[in-house]
Amino acid sequence: MDYSYLALKFLIGGGVIVGVTFLAEQVDPKYGGILAAAPITTTLAFLFTYSDAGQAITRQLVMGSFWFAIPTLLFLLTLYLLMSRYSLIPSFGGAYGVWFAAVLVMNRLLTGI
């Protein structure tokens, strides 16, 4: 295993998180949201997967990412709605609960396809 390559992956991924946080705090939360929602992380995952495992696995990853984006959208909507009524931690708990249930439903639907 190439540990320097693994470290590079962590640095790039962490850089995206730092960029989102910086934009949200110092510039405008809207721009942080644009970066957070941009397909930067998925593109990096696709590039690294393609480099490590080839096109067939990357294509499967792309389709999995497509279908499991739906639970992520439900997570974001739930978090937004819950944060208007509850503090951050309970809101995250509820949003992750909805996300997990949606992942189970989506997985069940996909195994039937």
Rank of each mutant, 00 (worst) to 15 (best):
D2Q: 09
D2E: 10
D2V: 08
S4G: 09
L6Q: 13
A7W: 12
L8R: 07
L8W: 11
K9S: 08
K9H: 07
F10Q: 07
G13I: 12
G14A: 03
G14W: 01
G15H: 05
V16G: 03
V16I: 14
V16D: 05
I17V: 12
V18A: 12
V20K: 03
V20N: 03
V20S: 05
V20Q: 04
V20A: 05
A24I: 06
A24P: 01
E25K: 14
V27K: 02
D28I: 06
P29H: 01
K30M: 13
K30E: 13
Y31D: 04
G33A: 04
A36P: 04
A37Y: 09
P39I: 15
T42N: 09
T42M: 12
A45I: 15
A45V: 14
F46R: 05
L47E: 06
L47T: 12
T49S: 11
T49D: 01
T49E: 06
S51G: 10
S51K: 15
G54M: 01
Q55P: 10
A56P: 05
R59L: 14
L61Q: 09
V62Y: 09
G64E: 05
S65P: 07
A69H: 08
A69V: 10
I70C: 07
L73D: 07
L73W: 10
F75V: 06
L76N: 09
L77M: 13
T78A: 11
L79R: 02
Y80R: 15
L81K: 14
S84A: 15
S84R: 15
R85E: 11
R85A: 10
Y86G: 03
S87R: 11
S87C: 06
L88W: 07
L88N: 03
L88M: 08
I89E: 08
P90M: 06
P90K: 00
P90L: 03
F92P: 02
F92Q: 02
G93I: 10
W99H: 01
F100S: 10
F100Y: 09
F100R: 00
F100C: 10
A101W: 01
A102T: 00
A102E: 03
V103E: 00
L104E: 01
L104R: 03
V105E: 00
M106R: 01
R108L: 14
L110V: 02
